[in-house]
Design a protein around this nucleic acid. Structure first.
Lengths: 245, 245
DNA sequence: CTAATTTGTCTATTGATATAGATAACTATA
DNA sequence: TATAGTTATCTATATCAATAGACAAATTAG
């Protein structure tokens, strides 16, 4: 099961090994709150030099995943991944209930712009009509767990940025526009390396992977009201897709 | 909108830029069947040396995404990403209808093993009971689009590997066990770098990203029948999550 | 045909990555 | 206290990654 490591890949060995260790923690191969195998054993396991393993460990120590203690060993700190549910009733706050004590959406900035083809199609409006663009960050217990760009039809939702800034909730903001309930219509999902903006906004280390969703929310009678692109740090969040609910 | 590139990240600049170009093609910033901006322009756009851009382009040429022609330019070949639908009625073959002319599941190997905790919980059986493990690759028009490991309760589905090898379809194989319909109960989703096995099985270039789903299928009355971990190449497949259907 | 544009190739230099070996510092335990 | 096991630090070397500049080769525009 110990598949090997790729050389000359554009991804450095220490980064690949750091990823493997993270994976090992997630799958339970490396138990939380206990010691990792010694550096020499890891080096042999992955087929690399001990110093390369040390680079990987150093990165994970920097990330707060591991703690190294001279003479004793390197220990896995406890840090569970959040499970973010996606379904017909996807909502940021309620989705993380039980996993976090506090969560909210911070409004980073807002602006208006003409709708490009993709946004116009998603919202069912004319290409070039004005849309409101919100840049937001989802936070839970003080940690960034998502980074989203959201578009609304400016005609219908004028002033929604004010409501967002005040309430910290999309659901609450939409109530002010007479929308008491809405559904997730569709979600497109992909993944990529975090770019510099993601790194800054989500407090990630270079080389991290982000899950990217493009989603459309609709009213109960099917009218599109919201289009969003959301980025989730793959090392801290996994998405739980449920057919029902 | 042109967010910059991360240095000293463990991920080389040329790999990051190759990812950005792939992203640009996916979002339509770089149109298919037409020329990319000149190397000098890309170098300026991303803030790197021309030779670094050339390394990225070389990797994508190798991957079959671009074609470089001396004196003319570098062209984006047409290769749309497959959209793989995930919902209550997720099925490999029907999901790709209309996007491909041919698709099937190839059985790479099969074996039996005792169920670990995760598999036992998913299938609702006792930990340590025997399960059948299938290693499969989904292929569409001759290209690998998924790589899955699937577990079935050995007691109930004895011999399913033979049916899989013959039919190339999970749905057809389950019919032989009296299951004419089934539903996707839940899906957990994450992403990581492709490991050496993924690279070989999915015919990927080093540094590629794979989407990983862990899913449980159940009968109409809710009995779990199948647990699977599937890997999709993020550069060739995106997942389309639909609430309905 | 000429000039401009664009990709291809070459040399050179610097810094990051990876390997190798030796030794120090620290911890736990017999 | 002595020893084994572990992480920390140091030197050294080779290769990869990135930058820089110059020029060749092919194509297109005028």
């Amino acid at each position: 099961m110990a598949s090997s490591i790729e050389r000359r890949s554009g991804v450095s060995l220490w980064r690949q090994i750091a990823d493997r260790i993270l994976q090992g923690i997630a799958t339970g191969d490396f138990a939380e709150n206990s010691a990792l195998p010694p550096e020499m054993a890891l080096a042999e396991l992955y087929g690399v030099n001990r110093h390369t393993v040390r680079s990987a460990i150093a990165a994970l120590v920097q990330e707060g995943v591991l703690r190294a203690e001279q003479g004793r060993g390197t220990f896995v700190l406890s840090r569970k991944r959040l499970s973010y549910p996606i379904g017909a009733r996807t909502r940021f706050s309620t989705g993380l209930q039980g996993q976090t004590t506090e969560r909210h959406i911070a409004l980073l900035s807002s602006s208006t712009e003409p709708a490009n083809r993709r946004i116009a199609e998603a919202l069912g409006i004319a290409r070039g009509s004005t849309v409101i663009r919100l840049e937001t960050r989802g936070e839970a217990d003080g940690h960034a767990v998502s980074r989203a760009t959201t578009w609304f039809d400016a005609k219908r939702f004028a002033g929604i940025e004010t409501a967002m800034a005040e309430t910290g909730s999309i659901t609450a903001s939409l109530k002010g526009f007479g929308i008491n309930d809405y559904l997730r219509h569709s979600t497109m999902l992909s993944a990529r390396h975090a770019d510099a903006d993601d790194l800054a906004d989500l407090d990630l280390q270079p080389g991290a992977i982000v899950l990217v969703t493009m989603s459309v929310n609709v009213t109960l009678d099917g009218q599109p009201i919201q289009f969003a692109e959301s980025r989730f740090p793959a090392e801290r969040v996994e998405l739980k897709l449920s057919a029902n609910d």
